[in-house]
Write a protein that binds this DNA or RNA. Structure first.
Lengths: 336, 336
DNA sequence: CTGTTAGCGCTTTCAA
DNA sequence: TTGAAAGCGCTAACAG
């Protein structure tokens, strides 16, 4: 039924070993022999069985990727970065959604390891001891992608979320704002949530602006929660002159809530966020936001993983990619 | 180093076969024996090797997915549908981006087949004879996802793009519009491009509205091309009262181009499209658009594939999922 | 209910 | 430069 390396060997009048050498581009084969083998392969329509190869060689040229949700634009962008570089190094990707749920994360880590992936790329929620423990049940290299572990023991590539938020809020302060509200993510989320909230607080502190409880509202990263939070801010006796949203989507919700209430952005209220998603340049006014290099996070972490898999030495196993403030039109000085 | 089924067998004082039975939940094992085996597994930290299992059983519980671009929101949504159902049936997904480029598509189909996937889900550009030929080099079931082959021989799940476009344009006509422009995709693309263009033409025809060359402008699905096309329409001596865009993104570009030119949507010009992406409800005015059930396309095609992989009989191997017009606020009657 | 025994298709020493 | 042979870790008859 299926043609194997053995069939090719017989057809070409050589041994299996030689066919194997040809298929794997081993230079120690006489050109003439090589030609014979190629012809036999062609004639028989031979296709190497990667599973058998994997068993024999203990390498699958496959890496596992655990991702919170591939339908999320940010993660999809990371995934694309991963795949492009993987491709370049002839690796394939097994993709598993885990929705930032610890049990699911642990489970997929294990099935990925069962599949004998050569390496693992992990994006998720907090990286707990339990995760680390799961990682340690095997020797395959791991890199954390767009997250870090608290202990800082696992290689990772990420941006500095705290600093990104800090920069965004500082921009508002530089413009003259003193009444700055924040639409945050869930504070349980270490990266998008907690760190950004802290950046906000630090910026306020540094500028000597008192922190006000009622100026912080938790959202769920989504458009609707941006609307909801903004409506709440508008109901306050003293409404903020600027709003910092932890994500573009919430910022857009905020802008629309403002506009739907007859307010103008940025004339009446300024809005800033972090992400720089496609949508940031697809609304009016164009959104000022801090760009996160999602594609690069994926690409760099995959590149790092290839090095780890080849046991190459790696100088810094913790890489922080730079973010950048993209100034567009949603921020202006507060009204006098 | 690594603990194998053999080690477990020895530790538990049974044969490999018995361990295998336990691991695979074969009911023919005395509960007591089962318990002994589980304990040995626990003690040794045994983790089955899926590669070895794959070689022996000729099943990898892995399916290959070729996708144009995971960073594209529509495809990412499909991918999520696929993954969820795959998960449910205990399959894993190997994901390959192929950018709708035939050479890349053929290449990844082959590497996926080398990896001995149990099934293949294909999303891409046109499905040519060359594709079919590549599919036929193996016996693994294939299903086309959000595409169809011209010959109609391969199982597939998709929506009726022509009809979706037809419905959208009809809505405009029902509203009283007679000057309807279209921002199309590239006509080489069978689904999003050509079919939607045809739906547009057919709707016009049926309503007895003459087709006008200058009212059709090719875009590339992106926001910017929606802007560009709309600016062109506005430069026409007789400008259209309504615009049909082949994608939401182009529609949003169109709306902004209109607004940036001081026109109001829908008071001055109506805009309609197809996709119903998240963004459709994240702009002002809210976009009227035909919803494509992307997640379901993924889910249903994966479900179909599981049946094919189990050699279950399948009544209809060509499934067309229903689309639906989502009426929001970007369409109104033309000015008198 | 359990064990024995062949492979699955390939890579990889080791010799020649 | 080539071949022989021993596995890689597991499943799947088959026998008992």
């Amino acid at each position: 039924m299926t043609v194997t390396i053995y069939d090719v060997a017989r057809e070409a009048g050589v041994s299996m070993a030689t066919v194997s050498r040809v298929v794997n581009n081993n230079p120690n084969v006489k050109p003439q022999t090589r030609k014979k083998v190629y012809e036999a392969i062609e004639r028989l329509g031979y296709r190497p069985n990667a599973v058998a190869r994997g068993l024999a060689s203990k390498k699958t040229t496959t890496v596992g990727v655990v991702i919170p949700d591939i339908a999320n634009a940010n993660f999809a962008e990371v995934a694309r970065g991963i795949e492009d570089i993987a491709n370049m190094y002839h690796y394939n990707i097994i993709l598993c959604n885990a929705d930032k749920r610890k049990d699911k994360e642990i489970r997929v880590i294990n099935t990925l390891l069962e599949k004998q992936v050569d390496g693992l790329l992990f994006m998720g929620g907090a990286v707990t001891d339990e995760h680390v423990q799961a990682f340690n049940t095997s020797n395959v290299p791991i890199v954390l992608c767009a997250t870090t572990d608290e202990k800082g023991v696992i290689p990772s590539v990420d941006i500095n979320h705290e600093e990104a938020a800090f920069d965004a809020v500082n921009r508002l302060i530089a413009e003259g704002h003193r009444s700055i509200a924040m639409i945050s993510g869930t504070l349980q989320d270490p990266a998008n949530g907690f760190a950004r909230y802290h950046g906000y607080k630090r910026a306020l502190e540094q500028a000597g602006i008192p922190y006000r409880e009622e100026y912080v509202r938790n959202g769920n990263y989504k458009y609707e929660s941006g609307i909801e939070a903004t409506q709440y801010f508008l109901s306050l006796p003293e409404r903020p002159t600027a709003i910092f949203a932890a994500t573009d989507e919430m910022a857009i919700g905020s802008i629309h809530a403002l506009q739907d209430n007859g307010l103008s952005v940025p004339a009446d209220v300024s809005v800033i966020s972090v992400d720089n998603s496609r949508m940031a340049s697809m609304i009016r006014p164009l959104l000022t936001t801090v760009a996160q290099p999602m594609y690069d996070i994926g690409a760099v972490s995959m590149r790092l993983l290839t090095k780890l898999m080849k046991k190459e030495s790696v100088d810094h196993a913790k890489v922080i990619l730079p973010h950048e403030l993209i100034v567009r039109r949603s921020v202006a000085a507060p009204k006098a």
